[in-house]
Each structure stands twice: as C-alpha cells, then as structure tokens.
C-alpha cells in the first residue's frame, strides 16, 4: 500500500460484497489504530487483541449496514471498537492494574497519518473546541472517551457526585458542538 491512499468507504463496500481481501486492506490501514484505542480502554494488550479480532469479525458481518451518509468509516469503526471495549470493562466492573505504559506504541509516523488521514482538520477544530472548555469539563470528556471511564469512575476520580459529572459532560459537549459548528 506504499503511497496509495486507502479509501475505507470503498473497502467497506467491497467487504459488504463478501470480498475477504478488502478486510485485509482495512486491517492494514486501521488495525493498529483500533488496537491503540481498544488497548487504552482495556489496559491489557492480549485482551485488546481479542477485542480487535471481534471488531474485524463484526466489520466483516456488518459492512452492509455501513451508511456513508450517516458516518465516516473511521467513526463507524471506532464506534464498534469502543463499544466492544467498553462492554468488556463494564462487564468486569473495573479496569485491571495493567497500565497503558506497558503497551508499546508504534513509532512509525506514517501509520498514524494513514489511519485517519481525512480527520486532521476536524481534529484540530475539535481539540481547539475542547481546549476552550472549563478544564474540568474537558478532562471528564477526554477520560470518558479515551479511557472508557464510567460516570461512577469519573465521580470517584473527581471527588464529586455523579450528577455533577453529568452536568459537566452535558455542558461541555454542548459547548464543544457550538464551537465546532461556528
């Protein structure tokens, strides 16, 4: 795939048609990214790989349900991956002691550039929007999205009631949406 831009939407359409080779292409372009996201939530490398395996099986089965009018391929796949990972940690009640530092991030900068190539502008906008929020609101939004923390976990971490966390989340996200839109 050297130098060849990967169009994930096309790959998903091919997978929907039963093209197994397209799954490999998608895995090559998105697998590392999804493993990073899942491992951050799960906190255990081996279990994270199990989840990524389930994610690609799900993509294979459900590619026909992907609607390009409603979601970007990256957001669709991230949703599947995060939902799987969060379901796991909710089911077991808490995170294991394994720290994300034990995981080896990939040094290759190209891998990162390939994976969500079209997100860069949006990324900057979203990060700017987040940076403009009350720091406590931004912190719980990031911890929830990136680490998969529940209301209870966030409440314990911040030392405030769950209701307060909810208020921060709703106010923060609403403000973020306004900033991204403007």
């Amino acid at each position: 795939m050297a130098g060849e831009p990967v169009d994930a939407a096309t790959l998903l359409a091919r997978i929907a048609g039963g093209d197994r080779a397209a799954v490999k292409h998608l895995y090559d372009s998105m697998g590392m990214k999804l493993l990073g996201v899942v491992a951050r939530i799960i906190g255990d490398r081996q279990e994270a790989e199990d989840v990524v395996q389930e994610v690609f099986i799900t993509i294979w089965r459900k590619a026909a349900e992907y609607d390009p009018a409603r979601a970007s391929p990256a957001a669709w796949m991230l949703t599947i991956a995060r939902n799987r990972a969060i379901d796991r940690i909710r089911a077991r009640g808490s995170r294991p002691s394994g720290s994300p530092e034990a995981l080896e991030p990939l040094a290759d900068p190209h891998a990162r550039a390939d994976s969500l190539a079209d997100a860069n502008d949006t990324e900057r906008t979203v990060h700017r929007a987040l940076a403009g929020l009350d720091p406590r609101h931004a912190a719980v939004i990031r911890a929830a999205y990136l680490d998969g923390m529940s209301y209870d976990a966030l409440s314990a971490r911040e030392g405030v009631p769950v209701g307060t966390i909810k208020t921060w989340v709703f106010r923060g996200l609403r403000q973020m949406r306004e900033r991204v839109a403007s």
């Binding site: 493993l35 990939l106 990324e123 979203v126 990060h127 990136l146």
Partner: peptide, 9 residues
Amino acid sequence: APLAEEIAP
C-alpha cells in the same frame, strides 16, 4: 471521533 487521533497506534 477526532479525539481518538491522539492515541498512538
């Protein structure tokens, strides 16, 4: 989704 960009592959 763009928040996930900061996570290293």
